[in-house]
């Protein structure tokens, strides 16, 4: 057989404009089909919008104390009533969304950043690097997450930022594990050998060829982890270790509402509902993402 297409002198074809054919469109189509995931996605988008728009949509200042109107039940003026200092619960809840979201994103970022690096190193280099990193991760995983973050926060002192650090740290082993596992799978593929035999260095192989191919499980895990992080942060604030008064953090509001459970149940109910729906939203959205991104479920 002869080579059919000898090199020609014809003009170079223009660069294709559609960079990612099919792949993301298939993923989006699968996600669209999953009704539950779309509901989760809507909840998440709804809360993100609230977080961004809080100052515009909040009916009043979340910090404005009005002792005359304290502990008022929901009414036309205060849709979710007022707390023991007369502050509008709805406004506090809307501003609280910002806190919860930023806690979630910052701590997941911390966890993912260090977890991904540790996982990639441990999976790619193996041997003693893997042994050391894996053992440290095992130790971290052996602690119940909330206990670990309790310990970290009590060591660093109660503040919202320290909560982010604590929740981030206890997310590290989860990411490291997943990334390590995926790295082990991908590094055995022939195209990694091919790149190596071209003479690429480890940095190129790890970050240009392995990392993009293990993104799917990381995205799924990050989404699921957001829910856990928000819940843990609310829990720590509930215990008085996170957001300090007068910050309108949901966990702190819930904790505050606990003192008035019988006289003003709406004080605990609304922050509780907000936490529950946001966590639920992230969880079912994460489930849907996993189903859509999982290569084993390819059509």
């Amino acid at each position: 057989m002869k080579v059919e297409y000898a090199p020609t002198n014809q003009a170079l074809p223009p660069k294709a404009t559609t960079a990612r054919p099919g792949r993301w469109r298939t993923f989006y189509r699968k996600l669209r089909k999953n009704k539950l995931a779309m509901v989760g996605g809507c909840i998440v988008v709804f809360y993100i919008a609230i977080a961004l728009l809080a100052p515009l949509i909040a009916p009043s200042d979340p910090y404005a104390i009005d002792l005359v109107n304290k502990l008022k039940p929901p009414s036309a003026e205060h849709w979710m009533g007022t707390d023991d200092k007369g502050r509008d619960v709805l406004s506090r809840l809307l501003y609280g969304t910002r806190l919860s979201m930023s806690v979630g994103f910052v701590s997941v970022f911390i966890g993912a950043f260090f977890g991904i690096i540790l996982g990639l190193l441990s999976g790619y280099y193996g041997k003693w690097v893997d042994t050391i990193i894996s053992r440290v991760i095992d130790v971290l995983l052996a602690f119940p997450g909330i206990l670990l973050s309790l310990a970290i926060v009590s060591a660093l002192g109660p503040s919202l930022f320290n909560v982010m650090v604590a929740v981030g740290v206890f997310s590290i082993p989860v990411f490291a594990r997943i990334v390590r596992g995926s790295t082990l799978t991908v590094k055995k593929l022939e195209y990694i050998d091919a790149i190596r035999s071209l003479g690429a260095n480890d940095f190129t192989i790890i970050f240009k060829h392995i990392f993009p191919n293990i993104l799917s499980p990381i995205i799924v895990q990050a989404t699921m982890r957001l829910a856990t992080a928000i819940l843990s942060a609310a829990g720590l604030s509930f215990l008085g270790l996170g957001a300090q008064p007068p910050l309108p953090e949901w966990g702190a509001m819930l904790s505050n509402g606990r003192d008035f459970l019988f006289t003003a149940p709406y004080l605990a109910m609304f922050p509780g509902l907000a936490i529950a729906t946001l966590v639920l939203g992230f969880n079912i959205f994460g489930d849907g993402l996993r189903d859509a991104l999982d290569p084993r479920m390819k059509q």
Binding site: A16, E190, Y191, A194, G199, A200, N201, N213
Partner: peptide, 30 residues
């Protein structure tokens, strides 16, 4: 790494030996 340009390899599985996220020009350009 410098020597590697003199010794190349062609693998068995054409489906596993190319990075699925790179176009032909990226694969060869790299």
């Amino acid at each position: 790494r410098n020597m590697r340009k003199h010794l190349q390899v062609i693998f068995q599985d054409p489906f596993a030996s190319l990075n699925p996220r790179q176009s032909v020009s990226q694969i060869l350009g790299e």
